[in-house]
Design a protein around this nucleic acid. Structure first.
Lengths: 343, 343
DNA sequence: TTGAAAGCGCTAACAA
DNA sequence: TTGTTAGCGCTTTCAA
């Protein structure tokens, strides 16, 4: 069923039918009713490709996922972001187009996406410090919104980000209030912008209480269970080991937990672990069963929604002024984190 | 830059340029070379929408992700599958279109996808027992491939699946060989087809050694850390508790691990845990550091590749004969699982 | 080996 | 309020 035959059946011109279906005001309500009824009855849906060609709008948003041999960028958090963005696209009639590209081909991928015209804009993920993608997109003139921020860049751009500095500052303060003084930070890859911000929050909290930074208590890596385990084990073997760990992901926390056990220490008595992450269902019924300080999962999903909405707004308004939005993380401080042991 | 202007610059007709670029044989090699050179120089890429409209092919594959309030279907495994499929699409010139739909709207979503014509086929995820989606797709005539299988359906359909029965049978045998006799199974949601198959493998191994099933040692649920913890704790409190746990996911295993500690038991001595899952980086350099029996992550990615390749083959050949492929899981049996304690 | 012309299904300027 | 016409950028039949 296409527009032409539908129009013939109704004894109308394709134009009128199109106008009726697309909500143009000049159509009489009587015909509009007749047309919509017929369209529904025939399960008519306008052909997307034709519509796109005629309007010059792809009605699609691209998500470019760079994939490298070094890091596993395809992380679990990503799924939640996609789910949030997907909700918004469904409501607004946009398609979500995922492109998986090897790191090296990323520049080319944007260019092609642009000139092939199959998306109206793109969402950018996991920015690194001094990320060059923004410059690239600007020169292409392709609308975009960044999930996260880029520290090294002065020019303004559109972004949605969670206040990572504040989140980690609060978490560190939480541990400091429990009289912990040797607090370790098991962070994400240092090259990633969010990791840098998290570290800044941690440092800020320590500085505010005049506690010197110990570089031995700060590690970074890929946020896997193995990372948490190995790095925690090494730190526990120090002459003056940490009494608390602050980890950037649940997996690292679980690894750290394993290291704690292996060292013959007791969780919550000898060592506390506070995790920035509920990404994998740790939170249940809104109550942290284990020490957790941020409801990452729901935050990430919300970030997905906001990014998508922001990008659509930019595209539809034709407005190229950068917009930005800083989200406060939902903080859910865990109950089972114990005070620092007195030595 | 479009075909017309490119043709003008070359002093050729759009037809010839199109033919040259699309590899039609009737073009002289001289012109073809000239055309491709010019196209590259101008960074010309044919407009996707126009191409689609003209050929009637969307050059896109849809992935429909049902999202329900009850379950978190957007799971981490999904990201790996997507990555695998994405590789294949990139190579073959297809777009990957993700559609997130609320459970209830799924039927409608397929119908629209079909009549709007923005995909040439779909990939179906996470089949349930007696899943009705296959019937729906058959009646729509939309090509599809299923990742997994559906036990309740007799009609044939295209699928790619991992041999879950065998994987769990082997894992159970591994524990049985270590003289465990009270082996608990912490399984996924019973409604999911893969969970049912895994259970079958477990049951088959026990039956082969004439060990009676104990329903108290079989639980199912959403494969979260909390699930593993709660269910393991309950089972450890039984009069005759298990000496080993077989869990369907790393998270459940970690939860079970926590329950074991809380019960004052020692991992590898009092209780062993064997996990079907490396989804979160537990495996490192091909060596299991903890008891794990399947390299899920890489398997899932490979499944993504094969599903995508199979679907594209079907679409391009116009062949509607169902094809299927059973993958053997990559088994990596962990070293640190201990024998059953003698009582 | 190349080109002219029609058409894919829709939208939108212009006319009535 | 409705219809006519042209055109979006490409492919493809038919003719040269």
């Amino acid at each position: 069923m296409n527009l032409k035959t539908l129009a013939q059946e109704l004894g109308l011109s394709p134009t009128t039918v199109s106008r009726a279906l697309n909500g143009y005001p000049e159509v009489s309500e009587a015909t509009r009713a007749r047309v919509t009824a017929a369209a529904n009855a025939a399960h008519y849906h306008p052909n997307t490709q034709a519509k796109r060609l005629a309007t010059g709008r792809a009605m699609a948003i691209g998500h470019i996922i760079p994939i490298s041999d070094r890091h596993e960028i395809v992380n679990p958090v990503f799924a939640d972001f996609i789910a949030g963005a997907g909700e918004v696209y469904a409501r607004s009639g946009y398609d979500m187009v995922l492109t998986i590209v090897p790191d090296a081909d990323e520049a080319r991928a944007y260019g092609e996406l642009r000139s092939k015209g199959n998306v109206d804009g793109v969402l950018i993920h996991a920015p690194r410090v001094n990320d060059h993608r923004i410059t690239m997109l600007e020169s292409l003139g392709l609308p975009y919104v960044l999930h996260g921020r880029i520290s090294g860049i002065e020019s303004s751009y559109s972004w949605v980000d969670v206040n990572n500095v504040r989140a980690f500052e609060r978490a560190t303060n939480f541990l400091l209030d429990l009289r912990h003084r040797r607090i370790a930070l098991i962070n994400g890859i240092g090259d990633m912008d969010f990791a840098r911000r998290r570290r800044r929050g941690y440092e800020r909290a320590l500085a505010a209480r005049a506690i010197a930074l110990d570089p031995q208590l700060i590690t970074e890596g890929e946020m896997t269970e193995a990372q948490g385990h190995d790095q925690a084990r090494a730190m526990l073997a120090l002459p003056d080991p940490p009494t608390a760990f602050l980890t950037a992901s649940l997996l690292s926390a679980m690894g750290a937990r394993r290291a704690v056990e292996e060292a013959g220490l007791v969780m919550g008595r000898d060592v506390s672990i506070l995790t920035h992450d509920d990404e994998l269902g740790y939170l249940k019924n809104g109550t942290a069963q284990e020490p957790i300080f941020t409801a990452t999962r729901s935050s990430v999903r919300e970030a997905g929604r906001r990014c998508a909405a922001m990008l659509i707004a930019q595209i539809e308004s034709g407005n190229r002024q950068p917009i930005s939005e800083l989200m406060e993380a939902v903080l859910v401080l865990g109950q089972s984190t114990g005070p620092a042991p007195s030595r």
